[in-house]
Design a protein around this nucleic acid. Structure first.
Length: 643
RNA sequence: GCCAAUUUAGCUCAGGUGGUAGAGCAGCACCCUCGUAAUGUGCAGGUCGUUGGUUCGAAUCCAAUAAUUGGCUCCA
């Protein structure tokens, strides 16, 4: 008999060799139907694997992340079976679960697959799922495994095998499909009910662009049809919020093939929105002791040689701008820091000047790969809400903490209440991509870790995510439908001060090296506005929305009164417009609702007689008569509270 | 940059198998002067992304190129 310990601490005895599925069945049939895998001594196991020693046991269901991953991994095998059926001779690389679903990288040989094939594959998968084939695990010797895939002619699996040790190799078979796999898997295909193949992509074998491109098929599955439908609704919801669609509809920005791809053109409404955001941050920064600076859009090549950007990105960037002078070259600035450094160097600095906080909404240009461009979130020209803080080493932590406060204030003001902070450190193994000394890096990394700890922040650490000159603290916000976006960043930098030989005179009258902090709470205005648009579905808060009030006269007869009301609002710095078209009120209301303008003031005979307006709020309907003064106070209040 | 796909009027989209384009909305004009999500009538609007090829003839077939989309790689 063996002792099995459950998560609640209960210990029960079972005969040796019992499977977790049998244990579940003894507890209840309902449980046995629901569970997908078992966590045995912290390791995820097949339910059918016999337990031979004392162990802790936790049943994994769809509600557990690990249960979901197992489910999706098994779904990847199911998809592979369907693909092999449709494309005999297909060779399979790996098929892991991902955050939302799974994929499988496949070499289809001469065959090409397009989105239209996905529906057929889905049907086949459903058919195979209904057969309710068990996933059968089989331990196999390395030599037998190699022979199996040699016979199949699958060089990818042979490559995988070459990295595995004999005695640790297992095959899984369901129906007609057998795959090299560590497992674990769900008991059988019948558990997979809702199936959706979402997209096709090319993916390099082993992620290396010199290797062959495999076909990657993405999918997502669910244990019931209802959850699939909810997921499809989520996709629809995401589509509705897409900032590219809303940006067009709300006339915020556009692109022109002639201007160039990845170079956004801000339309008047978008520009007004963006300027208001800038004013908001500028005000907060002035209160926090930042000083504004303005620098040009280009800089000489030598500047970027000194900074290290040329060596790192020169070849993959916009190429130099030449001048009539032989050998003279300028680059579009990809970063504002070197320019700000030169401002620091413009005069001798004393410890009394520090921290020196230089801020600029600086537009930078980076030649992003064509396939990477995406709406406003990934562009080739964008404006960073940049600032560089030059401080003494002993000030770093305090300054860093102040920046954290500023970033969180910005998020809160814009309705991003949920965020995660990621500490991005060097790659633990490959140090070749970084500049600077080991000592400087250690100091910088420690400063971030300590500052976040002292702030009591929840952080996650990611290795290999640092910038090439220093570690970062990246902020990820969660939007209204649960998606994560990376926004602000704070970076500690001991390296650029050294490369530019920055100094300050200390209290001891000696020369010392300052430390730089790079920071951008929004990240970039473009990206931030994209995220904000998707977060609020284009219904911007009162303080930001381009048009706050639309005045809707019932007919032309009330136009004069409408104009008086409009003038009164404008006089109070309220952004108001009149719908002067001779349309019916229903039509005007509909158009204003669709334009997502928060306040509608309807004016007819009754309002003129009573010297009031009829208030209607976007998405809410008629809210009755109000005086213009009441409307003004209401809007001012909402603007003030950043509602 | 790579894989797959898309590109037709300002917007959203129709246009088997080749015979030089069509709808709805938006716009403009007229009618209406209207009470809380689309009044009606009419008009105008397109080198079918671009360039080349095949053909008597190309939105349609082929090639190149550009932009866009979903991924991969990248992201100072």
């Amino acid at each position: 008999m063996i002792n099995i310990t459950f998560p609640d601490g209960a210990v029960r005895q079972y005969e040796e060799g019992i499977t977790s599925l049998d244990i579940a069945k003894k507890i209840s049939e309902g449980l046995a139907r629901k569970i997908l895998a078992a966590e045995v001594n912290g390791e995820v196991w097949d339910l059918s694997r016999p337990l031979r020693t004392d162990a802790t046991l936790k049943f994994l269901t769809w509600e557990d992340e690990k249960g979901k991953s197992t489910f999706w991994h098994s779904s990847a095998h199911l998809m592979a079976e369907a693909v092999e059926d449709a494309f005999p001779g297909a060779k399979f690389w790996v098929g892991p679960p991902v955050e939302r679903g799974f994929y499988y990288d496949i070499d289809l040989g001469e065959n090409v697959i397009s989105e239209s094939d996905l529906e057929k594959l889905e049907k086949k998968m459903s058919e195979l799922a209904r057969q309710n084939n068990p996933y059968i695990r089989k331990e196999i010797s390395k030599s037998d495994a190699i022979k199996y895939f040699e016979d199949k002619g699958d060089e990818y699996k042979l490559d995988l095998l070459s990295g595995l040790q004999d005695g640790t190799i297992s095959f899984y078979t369901q129906g007609n499909f057998t795959d090299l796999c560590r497992g674990p898997h769900i008991p059988s295909t019948g558990l997979i009910k809702g199936i959706k193949l979402t997209s096709i992509a090319g993916a390099y074998w082993k992620g290396n662009e010199h290797n062959k491109m495999l076909t990657r098929i993405y999918g997502v599955t669910f244990p019931n049809q209802k959850e699939l439908e909810e997921y499809l609704v989520f996709l629809e919801e995401a589509k509705k919020r897409d900032h590219r669609k809303l940006g067009k509809e709300l006339e915020l920005f556009t692109f022109s093939e002639k201007v160039g791809s990845g170079l956004p053109l801000w339309l008047p409404k978008g520009a007004m929105l963006r300027e208001r955001l800038q004013q908001f941050l500028q005000k907060a920064q002035i209160e926090a002791g930042y000083l504004p600076v303005i620098t040009p859009h280009i800089g000489s090549k030598s500047l970027y040689i000194t900074s290290g950007h040329y060596e790192k990105y020169g070849a993959d960037s916009f190429q130099p701008i030449k001048t009539p002078v032989e050998g003279e070259e300028f680059f579009l600035k990809p970063m504002n820091c070197p320019h700000h450094i030169e401002i620091y160097k413009a005069s001798p600095r004393s410890y009394k000047d520090l921290p020196l906080r230089l801020a600029e909404f600086g537009t930078v240009y980076r030649y992003e790969q064509s396939g990477e461009l995406h709406g406003l979130t990934r562009v080739r020209g964008f404006t960073q809400d940049d600032a560089h803080l030059f401080c003494m080493p002993e000030q770093v932590k305090d300054e860093f903490k102040k920046v954290i406060d500023l970033v969180l204030y910005v998020f809160k003001s814009l309705g991003f209440t949920e965020y995660t902070a990621q500490i991005s450190l060097r790659d633990q193994v490959d140090r070749s991509k970084y500049i600077g000394t080991e000592k400087n890096w250690d100091m910088a990394e420690l400063a971030i870790i300590e500052a976040t700890r002292e702030k009591g922040m929840n952080t996650i650490i990611e290795y290999g995510e640092a910038a090439f000159y220093g570690p970062k603290l990246d902020f990820m916000v969660r939007d209204a439908i649960g998606r994560k976006w990376q926004l602000g960043t704070i970076q500690v930098d001991y390296n650029l001060p050294e490369r530019f030989d920055l100094i300050y005179i200390g209290e001891d009258n000696a020369r010392h090296r300052p430390v730089m902090i790079h920071r951008a709470p929004f990240g970039s205005m473009e990206r931030f506005i994209a995220v904000l648009t998707e977060h609020c579905m284009g219904k911007f808060p009162m303080w930001l929305v381009p048009v706050q009030v639309k005045i809707l006269p019932i007919s032309d007869k009330y136009m004069e009164y409408a104009e008086n009301v409009c003038a009164e609002l404008k006089n109070e710095d309220i952004r108001a417009e009149i719908d002067e078209r001779s349309e019916k009120i229903g039509k005007k209301i509909r158009d204003t609702e669709l334009a997502k303008i928060p306040i509608m003031l309807i004016i007819g005979e009754k309002e003129v007689n009573d010297q009031v307006v009829s208030l209607r709020r976007q998405g809410k309907g008629d809210e009755g008569s109000k005086t213009v003064k009441e409307i003004i106070d209401m809007i001012h209040q909402e603007v003030k509270n950043k509602k």
